[in-house]
Nucleic acid binder design. Structure first.
Length: 271
DNA sequence: AGTGCGGCCTGTCCGC
DNA sequence: TGCGGACAGGCCGCAC
């Protein structure tokens, strides 16, 4: 489900409500997520208070004052802020009951998500070690992306979706950024010129920032922590628009599969 | 080392 | 209305 803007939307929605609250009780109804929730997780989390909610790529990090909880929403995960008496629904896998009668509930039909302890003693976690720069930080630069791309034969779309290159750019925003930069998604990353990478870096930043401002993209089931829809889907230029006219030149948008993922582009605007 | 593919899961939608 | 198949916004692990 969520790419960086959706995860950031959730982070911003959740953090002010949970900050300073302690975890009173933990219920794990189904531990079979992408990685099993360890048996000791409830004991690990109980009694701790939440000092911050951070984001790294598409991971949410609940800072318990040193120790952390690492949480990923996968494709279909949702995080809800609820009253403690909220009825249980299918796929409600983990509950964190917080002080002051607030329930933080993890719901994930496909179970591609993850909820894992990240002890303070482990300076790095294997799942976030080796990740590329944040696309909205300064170390994600034209020079960096150009340098990383040299000699790479993979399609530029796959290249910018590679989390070791840059985090948080998923299938929707990769297509959108490449349209904005005028680059065809199939071009080998190593053949894209420096000026075009400059446009691409600008485009990735613009698309992600705009999507965050709109509260993310709701296509199927993305919702914020209070169940609200995002609005960026109204501004999609190519994603999911195959056969419809390009908003710039009127040419029908094309769909093709790159790396087993649907990709959309305008054959005239993108070379 | 970089690349591409399979697989993890359930829900939904589309065509027959 | 029922059924099978394709597809879905992520990403690790593996073979080449």
């Amino acid at each position: 489900m969520p790419e960086l803007p959706e995860v950031e939307t959730i982070r911003r929605g959740v953090e002010p409500h949970v900050l300073g609250r302690s975890i009173v009780a933990v219920t794990v109804r189904d531990a079979r997520l992408r990685w099993p929730i360890p048996a000791g997780f409830a004991d690990y989390a109980r009694g701790r208070s939440i000092a911050a909610v951070r984001r790294r790529g598409k991971y949410l990090i609940f800072d318990l004052g040193g120790d952390r909880i690492l949480l990923h929403l996968g494709m279909s995960g949702r995080l809800y802020l609820l009253n403690p008496d909220e009825p249980l629904r299918r796929h409600d896998h983990v509950d964190l009951l917080l002080s002051g009668d607030l329930l933080l509930r993890f719901h994930d039909p496909r179970r591609f998500g993850a909820v894992l302890p990240w002890p303070a003693a482990d300076s790095d976690h294997v799942l976030v070690a080796g990740m590329g720069p944040e696309p909205l930080e300064d170390d994600f630069s034209t020079a960096y992306l150009f340098r990383e791309s040299r000699g790479r034969s993979a399609a530029v779309k796959n290249f910018i979706m590679d989390g070791r290159v840059v985090v948080g750019v998923g299938n929707i925003y990769a297509s959108e950024a490449l349209f904005r930069a005028g680059i065809r998604p199939t071009v080998p990353a190593g053949r894209v010129t420096l000026p075009r990478y400059q446009k691409l870096v600008e485009a990735i930043r613009h698309v992600l920032l705009t999507a965050i401002e709109r509260g993310g993209t709701t296509l199927r089931d993305f919702r914020g922590s209070r169940g609200e829809s995002g609005y960026f889907q109204n501004e999609l230029t190519v994603y999911g628009r195959d056969g419809e006219r390009c908003r710039v030149c009127g040419t029908p948008i094309r769909r093709l599969v790159i790396g087993q993922r649907a990709s959309y582009y305008c054959p005239v605007c993108q070379k």
